[in-house]
């Protein structure tokens, strides 16, 4: 049996925050990124986004993806893997209730839930193939 990609420390780190940057490639092959709320699953992460968004088009071209999980901490978790575009999954496995709970304004979270219910949002499911820690942003982005 192969070693799991995410050891217990990485799993705990992943579940400790929703703050991530999802990395993909543009049409010309150059790298790009999107700050996203990442919701941990048993296998990796899920992201909720608009079906018509630029990032959906990007991952339909190529599923190759990276994620940097970066709470304001002295560590960040660098993941490399693949994104699966789940057009038929409108609500994250968690229900999506934890989407940026620390920052969501009154009314905004309800609107996001409504757009999930209407099928206007879909799920990007990220499965890591490698994981490693690097020096993080530091508290409030300060080294």
């Amino acid at each position: 049996m192969s070693d799991p990609v995410l050891d217990p420390d990485a799993h705990a780190f992943l579940r400790s925050t929703t703050r991530t940057v999802l990395l993909g490639t543009r049409a010309d092959g150059s790298p790009t990124g999107w700050p996203m709320t990442g919701m941990a699953t048993d296998d990796g992460l899920e992201f909720s986004t608009y079906r018509k968004s630029q990032k959906v088009r990007a991952f339909e071209r190529s599923g190759a993806a990276g994620v940097v999980v970066h709470p304001d901490d002295d560590r960040a978790l660098v993941l490399v893997g693949e994104v699966e575009v789940r057009l038929d999954q409108h609500v994250p496995s968690s229900g999506g209730a934890q989407a940026r709970p620390e920052t969501t304004a009154t009314g905004v979270a309800d609107g996001a839930q409504q757009r999930m219910a209407e099928g206007r949002r879909i799920v990007l499911a990220f499965t890591p193939t490698s994981a490693r820690f690097v020096a993080g942003l530091g508290r409030d982005g300060t080294p």
């Binding site: 940057v21 790298p31 990124g33 994620v67 940097v68 660098v78 982005g141």
Partner: peptide, 16 residues
């Protein structure tokens, strides 16, 4: 500090 995205044989990889 910020997230930096690079390419590894065409696949995106990040760091700080």
């Amino acid at each position: 500090r910020a997230v930096l995205a690079l390419l590894d044989d065409g696949a995106p990889v990040g760091t700080i």
